[in-house]
């Protein structure tokens, strides 16, 4: 009786009800992405083109928001100087969870033309914030950006909500035990030295 067992323990992998709820919630999150109005360099011009009539990003349910508190993802569009990196980190941290980030163009991906000698350029935005989708290009085509949005939606729709909690709890336990072991080691070392 697979179905009934699944109902008994909905948190398990075979959970039907929670699985469907998870699908519904993921659908909502995937289909409604509000992005932060935030442009850095020349890629932002292409980003504007994506939002304008010809390529119409709103078809995917992406609506611009001007406050990071109401946004779902941030687009790092262009060269990230070291000074701007701090601001980007703050802005990203102001976005409420679940939050995502798209790195647009070579400069954001890895420093681009400045990856060797750009003393003031961050060599890849993933050194500061976690990036979900990287779009190569200098700048990428608007269609490439739209494909990245589709990829982001695909990623969101495959996320786990309920199992994640269990996993996180397990990881926390492991981390705790590791910390304890380290602490014991440290104490032993100290005792040895004394």
């Amino acid at each position: 009786m697979g179905l009934l067992n699944a109902l008994d323990n909905p948190i398990n992998a075979d959970g039907i009800i929670l699985g469907k709820v998870e699908d519904l919630f993921n659908w909502g999150r995937a289909k409604s992405n509000w992005f932060l109005q935030f442009g850095l360099a020349c890629c932002a011009i292409e980003f504007m083109a994506v939002n304008a009539s010809h390529f119409d990003l709103m078809r995917f349910g992406n609506i611009p928001r001007s406050s990071p508190r109401q946004a779902d993802y941030i687009v790092i569009s262009g060269t990230v100087t070291l000074k701007m990196a701090e601001r980007i980190k703050i802005l990203f941290e102001q976005i409420p969870e679940p939050r995502y980030a798209i790195s647009m163009g070579s400069c954001a991906n890895s420093g681009g033309p400045y990856w060797q000698h750009g003393y003031n350029v961050l060599k890849g935005i993933d050194r500061v914030i976690p990036i979900d989708v990287y779009i190569p290009g200098c700048p990428p085509r608007p269609e490439a950006f739209e494909q990245a949005v589709l990829k982001l939606q695909e990623k969101i729709s495959m996320e786990e909500i309920f199992k994640k909690r269990e996993r996180v709890a397990q990881e926390d336990k492991m981390l705790e035990s590791m910390l304890k072991a380290e602490e014991n080691n440290f104490i032993e070392n100290v005792n040895k030295h004394i």
């Binding site: 519904l24 919630f25 659908w27 909502g28 999150r29 289909k31 409604s32 078809r59 349910g61 779902d72 409420p96 969870e97 679940p98």
Partner: peptide, 17 residues
């Protein structure tokens, strides 16, 4: 896109407060 506002409601329900 008729379900767009519905998706937004589900999205907003899940956002961190």
């Amino acid at each position: 896109g008729l379900l767009q506002p519905v998706a937004e409601v589900f999205k907003l329900l899940q956002k961190e407060d």
